[in-house]
Amino acid sequence: MKIIAFTGAGISKQSNIPTFMERPDVREKLFRSYANRHHEEYNEVIKQLKANMNGAQPNDAHYALAEYKIPIITMNIDGLHQLAGSNALELHGGLPEDDEMEIAWSLYNKPVLYGDPAPNYQKAYEMVSALEPNDVFIVVGCSYHTAIACDLRELAKSRGAKIIEIQEDAAHNVRKTIKELLK
């Protein structure tokens, strides 16, 4: 049995990182067209995002996925999977380095913005396409608000994989779910 995890903002909520659903003022500014037209305002949004994530630490959900070496596809840009020791496929890139903040508006994949190509989407489809019946696709803290989140669930389902949704209390439920699966 193969297990793949697909994570969204909900996995990091217990690490005190607000979700975009809680910050619509931020989400509406994460468009390439906005960055190109409003350089300084966009840079300020990215600085705020980065400040929200500075000092955040992985929670037990991140550590459990790392300890059990579960392959991860993530929509997050917070870097917490990497801090926990996983090598996650980042669908939406990461954040600019401190020395890139003045040119944040011009960067690609730091993060991937609405209107930008997302180079890791194809890799995610390939990972999920490799699932077989009786494999497991664990969805942690992902809404249905993005096409990729819906597509990957549907693809896993079409491959015959069992889909397990963990939308609440990821810090406790991820480890518990993995232990159950591996009994």
Rank of each mutant, 00 (worst) to 15 (best):
M1P: 13
M1T: 14
K2D: 13
I3Q: 04
I3A: 01
I4M: 02
A5M: 09
G8V: 08
A9G: 12
I11G: 00
I11W: 03
S15D: 08
T19L: 13
T19K: 10
T19F: 06
F20C: 05
R23M: 12
P24F: 01
L30G: 06
S33V: 09
Y34S: 00
A35Q: 06
N36H: 01
R37Y: 00
R37K: 07
H39E: 02
H39S: 00
E41W: 00
N43Q: 05
Q48N: 14
Q48C: 10
L49G: 12
A51T: 12
A51M: 09
N52D: 15
M53L: 12
G55N: 05
N59C: 01
D60L: 00
A61Q: 04
A64F: 03
L65V: 10
L65N: 09
L65A: 09
L65C: 09
Y68V: 01
K69V: 04
I73T: 09
T74I: 03
D78V: 06
D78M: 04
G79I: 13
Q82I: 07
A84G: 13
N87I: 00
A88M: 10
A88T: 05
A88E: 02
E90M: 09
H92F: 09
G94D: 12
D99A: 07
E100N: 11
M101Q: 10
I103E: 09
A104W: 10
W105I: 03
S106D: 12
Y108P: 05
Y108Q: 15
Y108C: 13
L113A: 10
G115E: 10
D116S: 14
P117D: 14
A118R: 12
Y121I: 03
Y121R: 09
Q122A: 05
Q122I: 07
K123H: 07
K123V: 01
A124P: 10
Y125S: 00
E126A: 05
M127D: 02
L131Y: 06
P133I: 04
N134C: 07
F137S: 01
I138M: 14
V139F: 08
G141L: 05
S143Y: 07
Y144P: 06
Y144I: 12
I148C: 07
A149H: 03
C150A: 11
C150P: 02
L152R: 02
R153G: 04
E154D: 15
E154F: 13
A156S: 03
A156N: 02
R159G: 06
R159Y: 06
A161F: 01
I163M: 08
I163Y: 05
I164T: 04
D169H: 13
A170Q: 04
A170L: 01
H172E: 08
N173C: 09
V174N: 08
R175K: 15
K176V: 04
I178R: 11
L181S: 11
L182A: 12
